[in-house]
Amino acid sequence: MMIIAKDLTKRYGKATALNRVSFTIELGEAVALWGSNGAGKTTTLRCLLGVQGFEGELTVNGIDVRRQGKAARTAIGYVPQEAIFYDMTVLETMRFYARLKQVSASRINDLLQQMQIDIHSHKRVSALSGGMKQRLALAVALLADPPILVLDEPTASLDVKAQRDFIHTIQSLNYAGKTVVFSSHRMDEVMALASRVLVLADGALTLECPPYELAEKLGLHRWLRVYVSAPHRENTLRVLEEQGFVYTPNGRSVYVQIGKGGKLAPLHSLQMASIPVEDFDLIDGDLNQGESHD
């Protein structure tokens, strides 16, 4: 087990921020912490980092966080919602954190290339865009090649393209074996990244489930938006109806609700009915509340 939390409790005076939260996270997992503001997501991350006291037991990579906070942090690369860097260039920042983490500076160029910010290495950090600053934070987090990445709402302050690029990078790191723990408000982010979701409410762990199950419980479904030409529109709706899909026509496209692993099912049905699909994309969320594209 990479992370073991047992009866994790954190109190601020009379207020209980975390109440006997227990969970385990295995090597290579990507786990999302989901919950509203004040649910305990960030408090849990702070406990993992060992930057605050808590009751209960918590081990990270076999290290007792409460007794060896610094050692636990060597196993973790941390990316906050918005990293605040000192007034230095990108390269100086990387060198500073490499020395702070007592690791060789030999990885710096590779990491800057990997994060696609190597061409900005002589710029001051303050001149970078939000997306580039987050990629720099990720590069800093990866300096010591830690087995665990902890991310606190990492894409909250990014635009759509930067969000997509950042999530893609985290996905690659997870596929390469990094254990990823992140907090998020965004269902598309959770769906794209997490293999499991820990749902927190009022400091308690209320649910542990796969992301699609959480989406269903929240009434947030994943939709396939299918584009068909006007002559095939009526036939498309008939086929979807016959096959039992939940769908909503929308202009020259049709939204089709999909479940676990069901992205291909509507496309397959339309193909069998010889209906040419011009294009499609995936959408997460409640169609009545707005949408987020994948």
């Binding site: 610094k70 942090r73 941390y78 605040i84």
Partner: peptide, 14 residues
Amino acid sequence: ETGALAYLLAQPVT
């Protein structure tokens, strides 16, 4: 005040 301290303390330093 800027938040730089919180980020610094999240690194492997005491």
